[in-house]
Design a protein around this nucleic acid. Sequence first.
RNA 1: GGGCAAGUGGCGGAAUUGGUAUACGCGCUAGUCUUAGGAACUAGUCCCGCAAGGGUUGAGGGUUCGAGUCCCUCCUUGCCCACCA
Length: 860
Amino acid sequence: MKSPMNNHFYDHKKLDAKWQKEWQKKETYKTAQNAKKKKMYVLDMFPYPSGAGLHVGHPRGYVASDVYARMKRMQGYNVLHPMGYDAFGLAAEQYAIKNKIHPSKAVQDNIKTFEKQLSIIGLSYDWSRRVSTADPEFYKWTQWIFIKLYNSWYDQKKNKARPIETLEAIFKAKGDGVSGEKRFTAKEWKSLSKIEKAKILMEYRLAYEGYSEVNWCPGLGTVLANDEIINGKSERGGFPVEKKQMRQWFMRISAYADRLLSGLEKLDWSNQVKTIQTNWIGKSVGVNFKCVIKDLDIPVQMYNSVPQTYHAETFTVIAPEHPLVVELVKGTEHEKSVMAFVDKIKKKKSQNKFDMDKEMDGIFTGRYIKSFADTGRDLPIWIASYVVADYGTGIVNASVHDERDFAFAKKFNIPLNVVMLPADKELAKKVKALEFAYVKDPNGIMQQPARFAGRKWGEVREDVINHLVEKGFATRKINYKMRDAIFARQRYWGEPIPLKHDKEGNVIPLKTSELPLNLPNVKSYEPIGTGESPLAGIPSWIKAGYETNTMPGWAGSSWYFLRYMDPKNKSAFASPAALKLWRDVDMYIGGTEHATGHLLYSRFWHKFLFDYGLVPTDEPFKALRNQGMILASDGRKMSKSWGNVVNPDECVATYGSDAFRLYEMFIGPFDSSLPWSTDSIIGTRRFVDRVWRLADKVDMKNAVKTDAKVISHIHKTIKKITSDIDTFSFNTAVAALMILLNELEPQEKINKKDFETFLKLIAPFASHVAEELWTKLGNKKSIHISEWPKFDAKKVLADTIIIGIQVNGKLRGEVEVEVGDSEKEIVDKALAIVQSHVEGKEIIKTIYVKDKIVSIVIKP
RNA sequence: GGGCAAGUGGCGGAAUUGGUAUACGCGCUAGUCUUAGGAACUAGUCCCGCAAGGGUUGAGGGUUCGAGUCCCUCCUUGCCCACCA
């Protein structure tokens, strides 16, 4: 804005700074640990201090949560609205390595930049509660929770986490049996060595050590989680990723799969995130068939989540990596070719080069599954490239109804045209009714039958499962797609895992008094390339026997919201009193990109803490709102490489904080992705200026009687703004404020009280101009702790309204309706108005919807 | 391939959830004031038409007195998961 700033303009440079300073000085937004008022915890997902700085998309969620928090504060809630930094993790470390600045320094610098950028937006955070996950006083408790997880197992019977000692006690008294199968008796348990016992206990711990095939990224010299890989390349840097066996720490999140799924129901979250989590957890109900390998007499289980088709299955497929494969072909004519095939597939997969669609491949093992259930025939066992080894049992009975199985059968000429129905007559009838099992083969070409076509598939499945279980052919089995999460990074910049390994191979968790285990300050923090963490290169660290892996980026973010409740506590992650006061997050704002990461992990940790009574609620985030992404005006993502990044600092400098905040909210629906248009901010800037000028019309003596119509409009707006902010419909709230301003402007004079009400309504959005004018009206206390206007239905005039008149569905006129008018009066009036359209025609009926419409139906 | 959203003026979008489509803002046009305007203010701005009038919510069909909104088919776009049988 080039124009000179005279008194017709809001001098944003001067006044924004003035109020930001004043609020800070007076601690206007400091949260009291006060239980008298109703609590309201409004939380933003805290950012990585990445160093790239903010673009205009970042503050969108922060402004929204701020508007919400400000209204709640004015409504009399005790509002907790904090901000902090997710300072550990790959993002911060990558930045440090690239710029050759030690991560601890780089993070500090970035936080400074970040806070400077945030401060000019005028957000109402209680900065005294600021936390950083890389602060030892913080990560002491991340480590503490880790140890608690390590010292726990999941009791499926009680359906909660319990101390590992209770499991030892069970083993001691009754032997194994907690996981269904009895692998050892109590006597056998006692005869085990310490190391052997530890090994078995490790299979139950919620934080556990194990080996697994991991995503190894040579470019970064580290292991990556699945969600850090995009199309076979690392999310950061774009380096190729391959498979490698490695010692890892894991989180047994799978133990909580069912609770994570059922807990979603009662949450006030977007359907989108709920659906993503539901699919990610991937629950499926099916059966494990009890089968035997013919000639070898090896018992195997085959998982099938669509057992309706079992009688139509004519072959079996097994994953190439399955350990059984070796036994199947040992000493047979097939051994050489099969093992060569397995090696080929494994190699391809390890390089992440396997294109599943194009490279369907397989080989016959020469073995058969002995006739099982009531199928009455043996099934040839094939190795198929598309079978997933670690889902179900890794062995699948193939049916024509599955596209892959069908394509596979076609490719290898496996006959499929055999149909047999179950011996159970009732069931056979139902199954036959589905008409799915028939493969027509008119010209020697196999046809895949129509699947599922409008039938109650799930219902039949239950019948089939019950039948199979009753007859003893199979057991009911629930499977989840969700796997345990890797909880270790071979990197420097993360929380050290608080464990020691002794020479005998025992794992010794640190005691609480030994925490925090500080991250040593080293000169070289870059990956050492062997796949081990830089900590493995520190002699004193190794000598002490400390674990060299560090925690992944999501460790601190899985519980940080609890720390805000009591950020300085030295004896607990938060005091019981603080936890009781704040309980859980009432409103959480952030992007959907964390749906399968942070939002799942933090629910898991929270449920774990809940099992021990350490937090008062079973779910951490009662309500969740997701902001859409702000795109550049060209419709693409904002990024340095496109050169289309718009910086909030410039916008704020030119148009002021209030105009910027208003525009962030006005741009469109909060959850939509929208293109940014710096040109359009002028609109909200004009709004601010017009509010500023309107103040000249205020009658300080309160003597002017405001028009009843205007008062009515003010109250309608109070209602609208309140409900719009509650439902995150910020764009229509701003529009309603503009409409009210349009109404107020033509007034000669405005009553002081009414203008104050207007200022209160704009205060959550245009916080600075509202505060300045509020003060000018003579108010001593901040507008932001004043009382939110109350809607008074009595002040709303039941004014005359104009409704439409339709004749045969077409709009033909309008009629003015008075409050007391009867239906007959209105209809008669309407008929008179549209007389030319109904004259001489037979009226079939008339419909009157109160305050909405009159509809007349005539014979054409 | 599967799942979830969404298609309304030149642009961002609104529509009380089945009841006068295009609120609010940007942009544009004309005017006022000005040494000046890329400031401010006033008026206009979905399309066709001088008008009366007619048409319009991605396309087509259906339900209804009445459909942007509900149902079916298709097209397009975005996001998420992708061999989980």
